Amino acid sequence: MAALTWLLIPLMAAIGAGLWGSWAGRNRKSAGDGVELAGYTRFREAMERTDAAERSPSDAL
């Protein structure tokens, strides 16, 4: 009976890992690449505006 108990430990771990893997790999439709890319685009545009505003005419030489 003790050997059966020791065999149940890896079995339960495998079942738990399978459940966690299916939960972690689920399809999340609320946030996707579109949201992240839009945020990155806003960030990039803000950085370009800041960079252009800080330049002085003497920097162009």
Rank of each mutant, 00 (worst) to 15 (best):
A3G: 02
L4T: 08
L4E: 07
T5W: 08
W6D: 08
L7V: 02
L8D: 05
P10C: 01
M12E: 11
M12Q: 12
M12Y: 14
A14H: 09
A14M: 14
G16P: 00
G16T: 05
G16S: 14
G18E: 00
G18M: 13
G21L: 12
S22A: 15
W23D: 00
W23I: 01
W23F: 15
A24D: 02
A24N: 03
G25R: 04
G25D: 08
G25I: 04
R26G: 00
R26M: 05
N27E: 03
N27W: 03
N27S: 00
R28M: 02
R28Y: 01
K29R: 15
G32A: 03
D33H: 10
D33V: 08
V35H: 08
E36W: 05
L37I: 08
G39D: 14
G39Q: 13
Y40F: 15
T41F: 11
R42E: 14
R42Q: 12
F43A: 09
F43N: 03
E45M: 08
A46R: 09
A46Q: 13
M47P: 01
M47A: 08
E48M: 10
E48D: 07
T50E: 08
D51V: 06
D51R: 12
E54M: 10
R55S: 03
S56K: 13
S56P: 04
P57L: 15
P57V: 15
P57H: 10
P57Q: 05
S58G: 06
S58D: 04
S58M: 03
D59K: 03
